[in-house]
Design a protein around this nucleic acid. Structure first.
Lengths: 342, 342
DNA sequence: ATAAAGCACGAAATCGGTTTCGTGTTAATA
DNA sequence: TATTAACACGAAACCGATTTCGTGCTTTAT
C-alpha cells in the first residue's frame, strides 16, 4: 500500500526545503527552472496531491457546501439537489447532505455539526416542524457568524438571507384559471395541514382565482390532509359528499391518490373530473392517465441557489451592507391527460 | 457579527496557555478544578466549538464519508442513500455525495477530489459506463491508499473490497417461479442492454426458473431496451407479435410503461397479463393497478454498507490480512394488484 | 575593487487544534 | 532539614500545507 505522499517527503527525498517544494509545484518564479523540473517530475511520479484538509485549514475555505433538506426520498428535493450538485461540482465544490427528516432537532444538530468549519455555506429547505415552531434561531446563529445561507422553497421571512422560491400563489392561480377556462365550476383543493408555507400560498392562489371569476369559495371543497398520510378515508368522505368537476392537489401524491379514488368510484379523469397536481415528477409522467402538473423546476432552483451561495462565498464584500435577494422561479403548467376541457 | 472563537482567544482572554484551555475543555485531570470551571464557563458563554478542520488535520480522520452514485433522482439510490445517511449521522459522520451521472470520467474525477483527505472512506455504486469499460483503476488506487471502500448493488469482482448486494438472480427466479405457480406460461422479460451486471443476473434467474419448470427460453420474449429510453416503439413491436401472459421487468419504470402499453392495447392487468417489476418504489405503490414488485430493501442496504464502512474506518486492523465480506440482502416480492393467478 | 542588485532558496510563522514532555511550586516523606 | 513526589500548568512539536521575510551567493554597475 502506498501511503499518501506529502511535501515533507518530497523535500526530504530531494534534499530541499518544504517551502521550495511548495513553490516549485506552484511554478513560482522564485525557483530555478531545473529545481522546479526535478521537483515536479518527482511529484508526478509519486502522484502527489495536496491534502485538502490542510489547505482548508490554511485558507479558511473548505470548498464544501452544506445542504439540509427535509427528505431525500422525495422527487422535488432530489431534483433541487441535482441542480445544486451539478453547479457546485462545476465550481469545484463538494456537497455535504444532511436530512432533517422534517424534524426541528435534527435540523439544529445538523447545522451545528457543519457550522464549525466543515462548510463554507448552507443551502436548505426548512423542515415542517421548524415551520410549525416558527423558531429560526439556529439559522440566525449561522448568519450571525457570517456563514452565507440560501433558503429555497420552504422559506421564512424571519431570516435575512438569499432565497429562491416559486410563486406558489401565482402557480395555483394559473392552474385554477386554466380549469375555469376549461369550463370547470366546482373546483376542489386537496392540500396539507396549513403550517407549510407553500401550501397556504397555494391555497391563497386557489381562492383568488375563484374569486376573480366570481366563483364562491366553499370551505367544504377544501380538504386538508396530514402531510404524511397513509389512509384515504378522508378523501372518500370528501368526494362522496361533493359534486366536484375538478381538483387541484398541492402535490403529486395527493393527485395520484385522488385520481385513483375517482377511478375506483367510476368517475372518469378527465371527462368527469379534471385533476392538476404540483411537483412535476416521475409519477405525473407515468400515471394513467398522465397527470397535468405544475412544474416547479427544481433543478433550476437548485442551480440558482448554488450560484447565489457560491457567489456570496467567493465575494469579499464586507458584510453589514449586504444585499439579499429573493429569486422567483416561474412555475409552468405541464398539461397532460388528466385535464381537458369538459 | 460574532466571529468564531478559538482556543487562542480564550487563552489570551483568561491569561493561560492554549494547552491549558484545551485540557480544561476536555476535563483533563491535569488541570485544577477552579481553572477548569473558569475556562469552561468562559467557553460556554462565548459558545466555543472546536474547529472541525483543525481536528481533522490533527487526527487524520475527517468523520466524512463519500458516497458516489450514478443518479440521485432515482428511487432506489435515494433509498440506499437514506440508509447510509441515517446510520452515518448516528455515528457522527457526515456524508458527501457526488453524482457520477453514469459517466466514467465524472466518477474518476469525483473520487480523486475526495480521496485527498476529504473523506475517511467511500460507498459507491458503479456507473453504467464504468461497468461497460470494465476499468476499475480508480477504485484500486483508492484501496491501495488504504482508503476503505464499500460497493453496493452495482459491484464488480475485479475490486477487492466489502460489498453489499441483493441476489438478483434469486430474486428474478422467485418472481418468475411465482408467475409460473400462478399458471402463467408465456413469460416475457423486459430488461436493459446487458452491460449492467444486475440486469444480466436477473436474466439468468429468469431463464433458470423457466428451465426448472421445463418452459423453453424463447429469445423473442426477451426485450432489451436502452437504459434511458424515451420511446416505447420497441415495446409495441414486441407485444404486437407475441402472446404474452406475464412480464417480468427489471425496473419499475419499464413495468409501469409495460402496464400502460398493455392497457392501451386492451389487455387487462392482471387478468390477461400479470406484471412484476423490480425496485419497490413510489411508482409501484401508486400505479393503477398497483404493481407487484421485487423490493430491494435499499435502505437496509444503505445501513449495512454504512456499518461495514464505518467499522472498517474505525478498526485499526493492520491491512494486508484484511477480510472482505459480501453481504447479500434478501429480496422480497411484494404482491400487489398487478399479479394474480390466471 | 567595491557596492548594489538579483537570484535561488530556507527559516519560521500561520491556520486551530492535540499531546508529550518539562518545570516551578508546594506538600509529603525520610 | 533535605529529598522526593504530586500538582498545575506551559512550551513546543505536530498534522500538511502556504507565504512572508531573510540571507548567502553570484552577477552587474560604478
Amino acid at each position: 500500500m502506498k501511503r499518501k505522499i506529502t511535501l515533507k517527503h518530497i523535500a526530504r527525498e530531494l534534499d530541499v526545503s518544504i517551502s521550495t517544494v511548495s513553490k516549485a509545484l506552484k511554478n513560482s518564479e522564485e525557483i530555478s527552472r531545473e529545481t522546479k523540473e526535478k521537483i515536479q517530475a518527482f511529484a508526478k511520479l509519486y502522484n502527489y496531491k495536496p491534502n485538502n484538509i490542510a489547505i482548508s485549514l490554511k485558507n479558511k475555505k473548505t470548498k464544501n457546501i452544506g445542504v439540509i433538506i427535509p427528505d431525500i426520498v422525495h422527487h422535488f428535493f432530489t431534483t433541487v439537489f441535482r441542480g445544486i450538485e451539478k453547479y457546485a461540482n462545476d465550481k469545484g465544490y463538494n456537497v455535504i447532505v444532511c436530512v432533517s427528516d422534517e424534524s426541528f432537532d435534527k435540523e439544529v444538530i445538523n447545522m451545528e455539526m457543519l457550522a464549525n468549519g466543515s462548510i463554507d455555506g448552507f443551502i436548505m429547505a426548512l423542515s415542517a416542524e421548524t415551520q410549525l415552531k416558527n423558531d429560526f434561531n439556529h439559522l440566525k446563529q449561522v448568519t450571525d457568524q457570517g456563514i452565507p445561507l440560501v433558503l429555497f422553497d420552504r422559506v421564512t421571512d424571519e431570516v435575512n438571507c438569499d432565497k429562491v422560491v416559486i410563486d406558489d400563489q401565482a402557480a395555483a392561480h394559473m392552474a385554477v384559471s386554466k380549469m375555469i377556462a376549461d369550463g370547470r365550476k366546482r373546483i376542489a383543493l386537496v392540500t396539507t395541514e396549513n403550517y407549510l408555507n407553500v401550501s397556504s400560498k397555494r391555497e391563497d392562489g386557489y381562492k383568488q382565482a375563484l374569486q376573480e371569476h366570481n366563483i364562491p369559495v366553499r370551505e367544504e371543497l377544501i380538504l386538508r390532509l396530514p402531510y404524511q398520510y397513509e389512509d384515504e378515508k378522508l378523501s372518500e368522505v370528501f368526494f362522496a359528499t361533493q359534486e366536484v368537476d375538478a381538483v387541484l392537489c398541492v402535490n403529486e401524491i395527493f393527485a395520484i391518490r385522488t385520481i385513483r379514488f375517482l377511478q375506483d368510484n367510476q368517475l372518469q379523469v378527465p371527462t368527469d373530473v379534471s385533476v392538476i397536481g404540483f411537483t412535476d415528477g416521475i409519477l405525473s409522467r407515468l400515471s394513467n392517465p398522465t397527470l397535468s402538473s405544475v412544474a416547479q423546476h427544481g433543478e433550476e432552483m437548485g442551480t440558482i441557489a448554488a450560484k447565489m451561495l457560491i457567489d456570496k462565498v467567493e465575494s469579499d464584500v464586507e458584510e453589514g451592507d449586504e444585499q439579499y435577494h429573493t429569486e422567483v422561479v416561474e412555475a409552468t403548467l405541464i398539461e397532460r391527460e388528466s385535464t381537458r376541457s369538459s
